[in-house]
Design a binder for these strands. Structure first.
Lengths: 242, 242
DNA sequence: GTTGATTGGGCTAGTCTCAGACCATTGATG
DNA sequence: CATCAATGGTCTGAGACTAGCCCAATCAAC
């Protein structure tokens, strides 16, 4: 896998991850699990959502039906109806963690963690190297404050929001997409990690360091702080698996 | 675009970039332009390639036909036949550069450059943080030597090979894919930049610094060297556009 | 030469997906 | 209580895509 053929594997990979139905289910699940549409929130109307996703209403409805059957959504008819998110992240549980890893495969896990480390550090570095308007600085600080004031129930969702905001603030939608993808690949695993106060305290310090480095315009420090933070959670994951 | 709806735009984006035919053309073009299949080289047989790309042979043949009509491929029948790459990167030309940027849009260009900066710096950082076997160290050095000994004709292709090797060596196929995608988005622009000896000399020094930092296991230095290198080519691009 | 393996070229029946139209339900509003 | 706008539910005909099969061309090996 070290020779020229590695590049063939990379570029000549499947054009599509599955059929339209499967890919749509995956995308909606990403929106739900990342908390883009929070519990109790409503997806956009079918007609609008189908246009956004670039698929037909029929296919979208099949996907919504599947997620409804699986208990992620509650679909209601009539005006002020819609598809409401009923999914709440399960309580952290080391047993579920081991199962989730088994489903995913250890190689894929390593791949996902490496990918996440690279793109999130890259985003932090890039953002720290940009000149930021007051608006953007304020948004970053607000996300940090939201996270620090979060209940245990909201913590994961606001943590996601904080991390994704860093990528979004770079203004690169490709980078934002990559970070969202990276996060959703490890989302189930992160949710399964018990939230101990010690870890939350460490995370808060690290989050603060990341924001400080970005606002100070220090790409090196931002990269280092983000790397330290992500390595921390990756180490937690590995610890629960050993 | 700074509020919650940014995440809706990111996650609820089109599920598919186009139909199977279009996506296949795009993928094959990526393989050709990145030099994964070099000029004179042959694509895998249709039956095998269709399986790899996860599409039907009919769709693949339509794509090959389109690229053949456009002059990228020469298709020959019979045993030892196949689809041979005839495309050679056009000679650098500032006029073509301006046109290529116009086709792509300045916002998309900024997006692509930001994305590339983030993922390639991330890859360099991650690789520098790993323990590398002798094999892998040797491969990296060989890619560097190949590049330094390249003719002007081969330079771009071997430069691509060098950069992509860094991502591939991390072992993360997600990261390798992201870097290949980033590179192909700016490939036409890079090809249009005149290759002046001064710039090549600068690049050689920077490539050396990147490899040294990676082999020394210094993620910070690797990130910094890669950022400096990429900012250099980005600056060249911007200069030719101003 | 003849042969045979390999490769592109082409056809068909069936499935997936789509666009668009129309129906059914709901609940705020007058 | 009647209305009506917004939303999910359903159907249909057309086009895209696929799997599988067989044909045609080429050329090394015998």
């Amino acid at each position: 896998m070290l020779d020229e053929s590695a590049r063939l594997m990379t570029v000549l990979r499947p054009v599509r991850a599955g059929n339209a139905f499967e890919e749509t289910v995956e995308r909606l699940l990403q929106a739900i699990k990342l908390g883009v549409v929070p519990p109790g929130g409503k997806l956009p109307p079918e007609r609008e959502l189908a246009v956004r996703l670039g698929i037909s209403r029929v296919t979208l409805r099949e996907a919504i039906r599947a997620l409804s059957d699986a208990g992620y959504l509650d679909v209601r008819r009539g005006r002020y109806g819609g598809a409401f998110v009923t999914y709440e992240p399960p309580a952290p549980d080391a047993r579920e963690l081991r199962q989730a890893v088994a489903e995913m495969g250890r190689d894929d896990l390593a791949d996902a963690l490496t990918f996440r480390l690279a793109v999130e550090c890259g985003a932090a570095q890039v953002l720290a190297g940009m000149e930021l308007t007051g608006d953007r600085r304020a948004l970053l600080l607000r996300r940090l404050a939201d996270l620090n004031g979060a209940s245990l129930e909201d913590y994961r969702r606001l943590d996601t929001a904080f991390h994704l905001s860093i990528a979004e603030l770079t203004g690169s939608s490709l980078l934002a997409t990559a970070c969202a993808d990276a996060r959703s690949r490890v989302s189930d695993l992160l949710n399964a990690i018990p939230m101990l106060q010690v870890n939350l305290d460490h995370a808060a310090v690290q989050h603060r360091a990341i924001v400080d480095a970005i606002l100070a315009g220090d790409p090196d420090a931002a990269r280092r702080a983000m790397a330290e933070h992500l390595e921390g959670t990756a180490a937690l994951l590995r610890a629960f698996l050993a």
